[in-house]
């Protein structure tokens, strides 16, 4: 008892520096997928490679010169790309099986991607024309849609985890 009291006393009187030390948790979660219990979660190539693999195993989804040294309009380009992605996802609802790829050359915007053939060709042609027309009107520059079609969403699956 006495020793405990002494110990307490010494703790109160002597100055102490209390530093909480523990291992740093270098957990990275963004853009990564947890394996499922059965190991049957389908991943595309884009999903299977994490953000750290950009420029190693996969490339960027936006191609432009805005963020290079001396590039113009970096902020506007990002906002426009966000808008284009939102528009594409909403207009081509549940049709895109890949990310929306936006490539800019001079004032031309090329939008590429892989879509499912679950709607008729007529509807798809209408959607292409509609998208190009509306985006050209809003962004004030020519927009081209260059799509590839697949029969099934399974065609773009790279692996299961």
């Amino acid at each position: 008892m006495l020793s405990v009291l002494n110990c307490l006393k010494s703790r109160i009187t002597t100055p102490q520096r209390l530093i909480h030390t523990s291992a740093v948790q270098c957990r990275k979660q963004a853009g990564r997928y947890r394996p499922s219990i059965r190991g049957d979660k389908p991943l595309t190539y884009e999903m299977a490679n994490g953000p750290h693999q950009i420029a190693h195993r996969k490339s960027w989804n936006s191609w432009n010169t805005a963020n290079l040294e001396g590039g113009l309009r970096p902020a506007e380009t990002v906002v426009e790309d966000l808008f284009i992605r939102k528009f594409m996802i909403g207009t081509w609802h549940s049709l895109f099986t890949s990310e929306v790829i936006i490539k800019r050359q001079h004032n031309l915007i090329r939008i590429a991607g892989i879509v499912k053939r679950s709607i008729s060709a007529r509807k798809m042609y209408f959607l292409i024309g509609y998208t190009e027309e509306m985006l050209s009107l809003w962004l004030q520059c020519p927009v081209k849609l260059e799509l590839q079609t697949v029969n099934d969403a399974k065609d773009v699956i790279y692996k299961h985890i």
Partner: peptide, 9 residues
Amino acid sequence: YANAELMKI
């Protein structure tokens, strides 16, 4: 076929 990487570059 169905390779988005080839469409990006």
